[in-house]
Design a protein around this nucleic acid. Structure first.
Length: 277
DNA sequence: CAAGAGGCCTGTTAGC
DNA sequence: TGCTAACAGGCCTCTT
C-alpha cells in the first residue's frame, strides 16, 4: 500500500521511464479512476503533450506535461508499468497512455481506489487536495512545533493524528505503527495527553523512519512493487506492522493487534504504554 | 470545527 | 469441498 516512501520510489521510476516522451493516445477502461465527467475532454487535453518532469507531494504524484499536470494518487494498490504496445494488457489495467506510438504507460489497480485528475499548470496547488496538506516530513519543512500546534485542542487518538494528512503529509498505516513504536507512544493515547518530550520523540521518529524507508525503496506488503517490478526492502525493518503474535525486538513482549480509528494497529503493550498503565 | 461512519473496490483468508 | 462473511485501508463525503 503505497505511502510516501513507496510513492517516492514510483516517482523515481517515472523519472527514468517517461520524461521526454509524448502522449500519442489514451485509453480509459475504468472511468471512475479519472476524476472528470468528460473523459473525452480529458483525453484531448493530454494527447500530444510531452512529459517534462515528475514531482511528488505527500502521497500524490504530479506528472508535468507541457501545459497540464496529471495529479495521480495510487491509494491502496495503484501501480504504473512501462510496456511495449504489443504486450498483453492485464485485466486490472484501467488507464493506458500510449507514448511515442510505441510504448505504453499502464496504470494497474486491483481495487480501483486510485484517482487521476488533469489540471492546468499553476492550478495544482490551489487544488483542494493540496491546500490543506501538511508539510513534507523533512527537517526543512517540518518541526516539533507543527506537531504541538496540531495537537492543541484535539482529543483523538495520536495514531489518527499521524494519519491526518493535514498535520504532516505522507504517513499511512504501516509507518504510523512503526513511528509510534519507535517513539514509545501508545497508539490510543489522546492527543491532549502527549507531553513535550513525546512530541520531540515523535518528531524524531517521523523524520528518521520516513527517511530510512525512502532509502530502502519503501516496503513491500502483499503486492507493492515499483515500476520495474522490484520490491522495496523496508519491510525487513518493520518492528510491529504485521508482527502480531511475535516477540518485541526490544523487550520480548508479544506484539498485539487492535483497531484504532477503524484501522489495524500493531504495538508492543510493554514498550508503548498508556499513561498510568 | 472536530470526529466518526459509510462508501468505494476485489483478492485473500477465516469460518461454518 | 464450497459457500459466505470479514478483512485489508486512503481519502472523500456526509452526518452528528
Amino acid at each position: 500500500m503505497p505511502e510516501l516512501p513507496e510513492v517516492e520510489a514510483v516517482k523515481r521510476g517515472l523519472d527514468q521511464s517517461i520524461v521526454g516522451k509524448r502522449v500519442t493516445a489514451i485509453e480509459v477502461m475504468w472511468s471512475k479512476i479519472i476524476r472528470h465527467d468528460d473523459i473525452e475532454a480529458f483525453k484531448q487535453s493530454l494527447i500530444g503533450q510531452v512529459c517534462q518532469r515528475i514531482d511528488r507531494r505527500g502521497k500524490f504524484l504530479l506528472i508535468y506535461f507541457d501545459t497540464h499536470v496529471l495529479l495521480s494518487h495510487l491509494r491502496m494498490e495503484g501501480k504504473y508499468f512501462l510496456c511495449d504496445k504489443e504486450q498483453p494488457v492485464h485485466k486490472h489495467t484501467h488507464v493506458i497512455l500510449e507514448l511515442d506510438k510505441k510504448e505504453e504507460l499502464r496504470y494497474h489497480d486491483v481495487r480501483k481506489f486510485g484517482r487521476m485528475e488533469l489540471l492546468e499548470i499553476g492550478q495544482e496547488f490551489q487544488h483542494p487536495s493540496f491546500t490543506k496538506l501538511g508539510p513534507e516530513p523533512t527537517p526543512a519543512t517540518f518541526s516539533p512545533h507543527v506537531i504541538k500546534e496540531y495537537l492543541s485542542g484535539r482529543t483523538t487518538a495520536i495514531k489518527n493524528v499521524l494519519l491526518d494528512q493535514r498535520m504532516v503529509a505522507g504517513i499511512g498505516n504501516i509507518y504510523a505503527d512503526e513511528i509510534l513504536f519507535d517513539a514509545y507512544v501508545h497508539p490510543e493515547m489522546s492527543a491532549a495527553e502527549i507531553t513535550d518530550e513525546e512530541i520531540q520523540q515523535l518528531y524524531y521518529s517521523i523524520i528518521s523512519i520516513m527517511q530510512a524507508a525512502i532509502k530502502a525503496g519503501g516496503s513491500t506488503i502483499r503486492s507493492y512493487t515499483n515500476m520495474f517490478g522490484e520490491a522495496g526492502h523496508y519491510q525487513a525493518y518493520h518492528q510491529v506492522y504485521g508482527k502480531d503474535g511475535e516477540s518485541c525486538s526490544r523487550c520480548g513482549t508479544i506484539i498485539e493487534k487492535t483497531k484504532v480509528g477503524g484501522r489495524g494497529t500493531h504495538f508492543c503493550p510493554n514498550c508503548q504504554r498508556k499513561r498510568g498503565a
